[in-house]
Write a protein that binds this DNA or RNA. Structure first.
Length: 597
RNA sequence: GGUCUGGUAGCUCAGCUGGAUAGAGCAACGCCCUUCUAAGGCGAAGGUCAAGGGUUCGAAUCCCUUCCGGAUCACCA
């Protein structure tokens, strides 16, 4: 039982005994004591004053006296206004630290054999352009959430649905066919995904030029958009693709292979991975079958032009297209097929989609459609809806060339990490390989932390002109603290100091040290909450708080030069435990921490 | 227009299941390396928590109204 539960129970007893007020332990308001007051935990007294019929101060005093008498954990208390501040005995903290220090995997719940299965879909790229900053947020969130859920005892399958087919893919294929002159990644030296993305942009430009010309020749914009030769050719290509035209299929396979080779590099650099990859080209037929079944069931309707629609007006939504008039499938069709196949492939207890909030409507509809189709899990899908990454000028737009490319961004971060460490001369006596490893860790750490420390539900701003910081509330700051602790621990080992265990739990320690232990004890709760809330930001902010406190301790106290051997040992144990939590926590964010930097 | 969502320091963000004097970082200013890594620490400065009303012993937090932003409502994905 943890400290707060114990205290809440005692407070409930106190209130019942003194004022005959029945209140469940969970209802007791217990919070961390503000720093400016004496004590570690605070009971809010206001809810009891009605029953006590006394002033908040007096009520607090009475409850405090009861607690001190009936629980030996409480060494002293004070009452300020309606707040009862409790001081917990130092030996409790020291013993707790000792337990944590000697336990493996503190805060982590390893999944058991019969644990429930959570499937988490993230990344989900289109194969017509390279990944940009928006995808980076998606990938980092998806990966981190998967790690966090594992640490909360879930079995997790990380999955990726690759949007490898569709009209957008045909656009880059068509442009390459028309204007590519046989260009390949090898011939151009371009990374495969970037090469294909180039032709997607070329298509768009040529398409716009056609429209402009047609408008000049008297057509309305709407007519021009529908009848421009390029768009008609792309639509024909999609039809040919669905009809298994060998030439189109061959081109498609070739260009997608280029893209996958490029994505592999990006994913590897980013440090994300998947247990199972689905491709839309392999699931969309299942979707079509389901839609047709829906038509037979009478829940979807086919119009005279052949297109198929779901009428969701009864659910307060609109009509939704499921199959085009030419019979080709759309995004929704594919998602229906993919969802069904996943439940066939795995015994899923919870399905989570990590997809931006611009698709809230899509997932609302998907859930309803699956439910209508008779899948009992349809309504239980979780759309983990995160906010967009915006530039100071607003949304990123690929056509206006304002997207921040994922590969470029990661490279830039690593380079500035290299520059900083050269300036500081910190890695002068490391091997080239070590430098490379550390510089990559730090550069990516800065990027990942920058993105993950923000509440995922909120949109966030990224200013490309101001490079991501390495000081203050940043990944490198945390990594640096870890490296600094490790350095001290290495020296302690060299000196043969034993800090495997605390030999004295009756030591007198400072408030700062005491508070650090208290923070350490909060880690499991933070891991649990971040899992429940799907928020890596909670872990990021917690680690930052811990590290900030530790740095103050590190500055104000000496460790290795402390003359009291037991105190020195305590500080080493405290430091090692802190380092271990930093490492575990950062790993839940997908961020590695170096031994030196 | 309908629906959803957001507005906290110059900037980027915490705090939001109601609790004490609203916190960090960056930027700008001033200090601290003969001492375990200064990517660090300390100090000072910076606020009408968009505005107004309501509920409450207590509101940045809950409710209503207004203002301002964003997303979405495609035979795009």
């Amino acid at each position: 039982m943890n400290l707060e539960t114990i205290l809440a129970t005692v407070v409930a007893d106190a209130v019942k005994t003194i004022y005959s007020l029945e209140i469940a332990a969970e209802q007791i308001q217990l919070q961390k004591t503000k720093k400016e007051f004496e004590g570690e935990l605070t009971v809010v007294i206001f809810p009891f004053v009605k029953a006590s019929r006394k002033s908040p101060e007096q009520t607090g005093q009475e409850i405090g006296e009861y607690l001190q008498k009936n629980n030996q954990l409480i060494s002293s208390f004070n009452v300020i206004r309606g707040f009862l501040n409790l001081s917990i005995s130092k030996s409790y903290w020291l013993e707790t630290l000792n337990t944590i220090h000697t336990s493996k995997q503190f805060g982590i719940t390893t999944p058991t054999a019969d644990a429930e299965l959570m499937m988490i879909e993230y990344s989900s790229p289109n194969t017509n352009k390279p990944l940009h900053l928006g995808h980076v947020r998606n990938n980092l969130l998806g990966h981190s959430i998967a790690e966090i859920q594992k640490a909360n005892g879930w079995k997790v399958i990380k999955t990726n649905i690759v949007n490898d087919r569709g009209i957008h893919i045909c656009k880059s294929m068509l442009a390459w066919k028309l204007f590519g002159n046989g260009e390949t990644p090898e011939s151009s030296g371009l990374k495969g995904d970037h090469l294909v993305g180039k032709y997607y942009v070329i298509f768009d430009k040529a398409f716009k030029a056609e429209i402009k010309e047609m408008i000049e020749n008297g057509l309305s914009e709407e007519e021009a958009k529908k009848s421009a030769p390029l768009i008609l050719a792309a639509q024909q290509m999609l039809l040919d693709w669905e009809n298994n035209d060998p030439e189109v299929r061959h081109l498609w396979e070739t260009m997608n292979a280029w893209v996958y080779a490029g994505f592999d590099v990006t994913y590897k650099q980013m440090g994300v991975d998947f247990d199972k990859i689905y491709y839309e080209s392999e699931t969309y037929l299942e979707g079509k079958t389901e839609v047709e079944r829906g038509v037979d069931m009478g829940i979807f309707n086919q119009r005279t032009d052949g297109s198929v629609w779901a009428d969701l007006t009864a659910d307060g939504l609109d009509e939704k297209l499921l199959l085009r008039a030419d019979g080709t499938s759309v995004y929704m069709t594919q998602d229906i097929g993919t969802a069904k196949l996943r439940y066939v492939d795995y015994p899923i207890n919870k399905m989570v989609y990590v997809v931006g909030n611009e698709q809230n409507y899509h997932f609302q509809v998907l859930s309803i459609l699956l439910d209508k189709l008779g899948f009992e899990w349809g309504k239980s899908l979780v759309h983990f809806s995160y906010g967009m990454v915006e530039l100071p000028e607003g949304k990123m737009k690929s056509r206006e060339g304002t997207v921040v490319d994922a590969d470029d961004l990661m490279d830039e971060m690593i380079e500035s990490a290299r520059e900083t460490s050269q300036e500081l001369g910190k890695l002068d006596n490391c091997t080239a390989e070590e430098i490379e490893r550390i510089v990559r860790m730090v550069g990516l750490g800065a990027l990942k932390y920058f993105i993950l420390k923000v509440d995922p539900r909120k949109s966030m701003t990224f200013n490309p002109k101001e490079s991501i910081d390495f000081n203050g509330n940043t990944g490198p700051f945390i990594q640096y603290t870890h490296a600094r602790i490790k350095s001290v621990l290495r020296k302690a080992l060299e000196q043969g100091i034993d800090f495997t265990n605390l030999s004295d739990t009756q030591l007198t320690i400072s408030d700062k040290e005491n508070y650090l232990i208290q923070l350490i004890t909060e880690f499991p709760g933070v891991v649990r909450l971040s899992g429940e809330e799907f928020s890596p930001a909670l872990i990021a902010n917690y680690i930052y708080d811990l590290v900030k406190e530790y740095n103050q301790f590190y500055h104000d106290f000496t460790i290795l030069k402390e003359e009291n051997q037991n105190l020195k040992q305590f500080r080493l144990v405290l430091s090692e435990t802190t380092a271990s939590i930093i490492k575990t926590g950062m790993l839940l964010l997908g961020i590695e921490v170096p031994e030196r930097m």
